[in-house]
Amino acid sequence: MKRIKIEPAWSFTDEAGNRLDPQLFGLLQGIHRSGKLTEAAAEAGISYRHAWNLLNKWADFFGVTLVEMQKGRGARLTPLGDKLLWARQRVAARLGPQLESLGSELNLELQQLFEGVEPVLRMHASHGYAVALLPRFASDFQLDLQYCSPAEALAALNRGACDVAGYHMPTSATQGPLMQGYRRQLRPRSHCIIRFITRCQGLMLAPGNPRGVAGLADLVRGDVRFINRQQASGTRALLDILLREVGLSAQRIRGFELEEYTHSAVAAYIAAGMADVGFGVEAAARQFGLDFLPLASEHYLLLCQRSSLADPSVLRLLEMIRGAPFQQAVRELPGYSLDRCGEVCGVDELFDESRHG
């Protein structure tokens, strides 16, 4: 059956009722990437003449040019062009998970109109690039994917609000508040773990690393601006662990109180020139053309009730993530690797591996 996908759209309107053409953003993105109006127009699917007219029209709209044309040197965005492009990127990055969750809810409503067509798998999970691939490959079952913090996902599983919970934990750390919190919510007798992926987290840096950031110790320098993840996120918890290990106080980090809600939103914030460094996954850094300094690896795991392993929807999830198409898509994500993907193990077994690994 058909599935709904929700995407954000911008609308600028002046007092005369003129509206900003959405094609403009595709054109600005192409110019930023290639530095050539001809290539950008082709990418946007419009003629060179139309692209030129579009830029002139909206330069008049704002009263400032969006692109500078330099003879023999191609085209480059002006400060306003940059601001428009990166503002759109930030909006899409920030709202993306919420819109995906809403789309999942609407698809479930549609599914219920065709009762018995497909089994439904309710998954609450921490947002990530590999998890975001799941709806694309789900077949023969309806995936109701809701994004939330790892703690919220585990709590939802324990109260029966979902069938599978997705969370992540460092590959080496076995102590501290994060692991203690997980241990309180994981139930070895009734829960089992579905292995999923391993991913790399580290410092996402402005292109070329102009501040010369070489590690966590540089975050306390006065000339370095930081952008953080929200406090409830697993990525924030991992950063807190790393800072404690090297004895750094978060209060000394400029911008530590500023928060974004996804890896891509942090990367877009840096790409827009609003910060010099953030913490997140390598895939987000590469998506936005940032430098990346790896610091830690972590498991992303799926948790379910042992009794759910025989459910048709869970069986189809296992079949999907064990399959070649999904695994190939994961291999194409920078900083992601398959970690015995689809293998089922006990909770105690995983903690024993972490303790001795």
Rank of each mutant, 00 (worst) to 15 (best):
A271Q: 12
A265T: 06
A271L: 09
M69V: 14
A44S: 09
V347G: 12
R189Q: 15
Q185D: 10
M123W: 09
G255A: 11
A87R: 12
D60M: 05
A237K: 13
D163N: 04
L186C: 08
A9S: 11
E39D: 04
S47A: 06
A16N: 06
T262Q: 08
D311Q: 13
S313R: 13
R33I: 10
I194N: 01
G278D: 06
M204G: 12
K36V: 04
Q89F: 09
V246M: 03
Y182N: 02
L309K: 04
R88F: 07
L20E: 03
E349C: 11
S11D: 10
G74E: 02
L37D: 00
I321Y: 05
L318T: 04
G234D: 01
L216Y: 12
P210Y: 04
M274S: 05
P150C: 12
S34Q: 07
A265F: 07
A41R: 00
D348R: 14
G63A: 08
D291W: 02
V266G: 11
G128V: 03
E349I: 04
P79F: 00
A59G: 15
F196W: 07
F292N: 06
Y129E: 15
H356Y: 07
E332M: 14
P97C: 01
L27D: 09
E100T: 14
M169D: 10
I6M: 11
A92C: 13
E332T: 08
L219E: 13
G222A: 08
K2F: 15
E259N: 14
R322W: 09
R184N: 12
S308R: 15
G17R: 03
L37N: 01
V314S: 04
G273S: 13
I253G: 06
I197K: 00
Q142D: 10
W58S: 01
D223K: 06
S233C: 09
I6L: 15
L133Q: 13
R331G: 06
L178C: 06
H356F: 10
E118H: 14
S307Q: 08
W10M: 15
L157N: 01
E343C: 14
V91S: 08
L121G: 00
A155F: 03
K5S: 08
Y261I: 13
E105T: 08
T171W: 11
L302W: 05
S308Y: 10
V330W: 00
L295V: 07
G247H: 01
V330Y: 02
T235D: 10
P210M: 01
E152K: 14
V224N: 10
R183W: 00
C148D: 12
G128Y: 07
A217W: 03
A161F: 08
A130R: 00
G74H: 05
Q180L: 14
Q305I: 04
R184Y: 07
A265H: 09
V67A: 02
T198E: 15
K57I: 00
D348N: 13
